[in-house]
Design a protein around this nucleic acid. Sequence first.
DNA 1: ACTTGACCTGGAGCGCGCTCCAGGTCCTAC
DNA 2: GTAGGACCTGGAGCGCGCTCCAGGTCAAGT
Lengths: 140, 140
Amino acid sequence: MTSAQPATPDGEPTLTIAQVAERTGLTHDTLRYYEKAGLIERVGRTGGNQRRYAAADLAWLEFLLRLRETGMPIAEMQRFAGLRARGEATVADRLAMLREHRAGVARRIRALRRNAAALDDKIDHYERLLEGQPGTDEPA
Amino acid sequence: MTSAQPATPDGEPTLTIAQVAERTGLTHDTLRYYEKAGLIERVGRTGGNQRRYAAADLAWLEFLLRLRETGMPIAEMQRFAGLRARGEATVADRLAMLREHRAGVARRIRALRRNAAALDDKIDHYERLLEGQPGTDEPA
DNA sequence: ACTTGACCTGGAGCGCGCTCCAGGTCCTAC
DNA sequence: GTAGGACCTGGAGCGCGCTCCAGGTCAAGT
């Protein structure tokens, strides 16, 4: 998904936490928090105990961000990550989770649209108030 | 907006906090919190100091819920409510706030759709994993 | 060798939006 | 007149998702 890494095709962990922070928009603290929380599996370390992320870690983080941005709470992401860590046997469960979450997203988009329509009505109302008679007391 | 009230057309405060809680889905505590926070102006009281909401209060609460459900933080609602309390002179400011908020909602809907598309991709991926070869190790 | 800045850990603290509690008053029904 | 439930107040507490801090270690440049 990301393009030109120096030389490593996928496997070798090369990215520092600062680089991952920059690419994902997460802070160092949030990255460490996600690791501590089990959202990402313990990432590789250098001899001196510093984190080095692999491209696969980055891809997973980016997927987590899709979940977060669609409103999935951390507890649920933990559950998902836990299933993922248990391997291929949990694909059906993960699929079910994702489908459910996806349906929730669709509902939230619909709700947002309905509410946006109400905002539009109010905006219209204010516009008429302003252009029309700038001396009437408002009923709403 | 609401239909058959007993006899009062709009003005008289008649609804108990429990009735308003039921109609809005807010709890008693939240209603009191919103009043304390200045999101709604101090509502009418009986001789015995119990709240009685007017239909206009209910309508305003329902509008606040539209703001809340579209993600407006309470601090911003306080600002909006403050402008409203200052009367007709603030209509232009309120209109500006609403337009800005409306634009944010549009952005969030677009972002949700983009992220939902990524979820759909992942769902497809899992579906292929499941139907296809239920014995392959997954690369994502 | 030394400095400087990136990184490490465990744990405390924070902002938001409620939610709950204690201790009291009110009101409706019997 | 009394029981029981709905309501009142001020203020403490909570769950979430980070964010910050102290006190260190590590690594690259001069």
